[in-house]
Design a protein around this nucleic acid. Structure first.
Lengths: 114, 114
DNA sequence: TTACATTATATAAACATCTTATATATTATC
DNA sequence: GATAATATATAAGATGTTTATATAATGTAA
């Protein structure tokens, strides 16, 4: 049963995947990247993002580095080893879930070529 | 912004879509069909399903008919006109969301041919 | 120089949703 | 007689999301 942590929890996987691909990122950057990748369709809210980031940190999945940029604090997040080993698993789970959804919502047709 | 009602709310759309395709269904049947369509990967829980069905009813999206089958009550759910006009919109939203997710999780490759 | 948009992190309250546990009851199978 | 499958349903608790709010610096246009 995939469902658990997925219908609700895709945000975690998104964050993990972006950090894997981009090395290290700060919160604002993550929301920007998601908007960019989805043509503005998905806009993360900070009220959702920061709790997820903090939780991932407390779980040892990522670490933070605070840096000064233009007199502003910028907090970079990057994956730990644990985090790295988690990403592919989570991404695979999400993709399986997506396939399952497509099996329900779009049972006749194959993958879309949009 | 699709996100709202989707990361969490795909259950509504799944129910709507199944009712559209199958005319009328009862709760137990819906969970069975979802398991079937997803090769057992998604198992709906009744604690999630029934509240959704009741809510959709209170919103005028579906109606119920109680019937007797083998001395057991079976409650069939079917879409109202409002329900019918809602399905395609919700399904389109869910598919857009799926595409967005794929854009994040699988940015390089096209659709999977698994 | 004032105002507004953008950049940047963060928390709390309210709300929605989901899981788990529980209750009930019939029929079929071992 | 016991267990599995069929069938609906609710409550408590956990989790996750939105909305509102706070703070603060920089860039830009009027």
């Amino acid at each position: 049963m995939l469902q658990t942590d997925l219908i609700k929890g895709s945000l975690r996987t998104i964050v993990l995947k972006l950090l894997k691909e981009n090395g290290r990122m700060y919160g604002y950057e993550i929301t920007r990247r998601v908007e960019e990748l989805t043509s503005g369709k998905i806009k993360l809210t900070y009220g959702a993002l920061y709790p997820v980031l903090h939780k991932l940190e407390s779980e040892g999945v990522l670490v933070t580095e605070a840096e000064n940029f233009n007199n502003r604090i910028r907090i970079y997040y990057s994956l730990t080893e644990i985090g790295h080993s988690l990403v592919s698993e989570k991404v695979r789970e999400l993709m399986e879930f997506i396939e399952s959804l497509q099996g329900i919502v779009n049972p006749k047709t194959g993958p879309s070529y949009a």
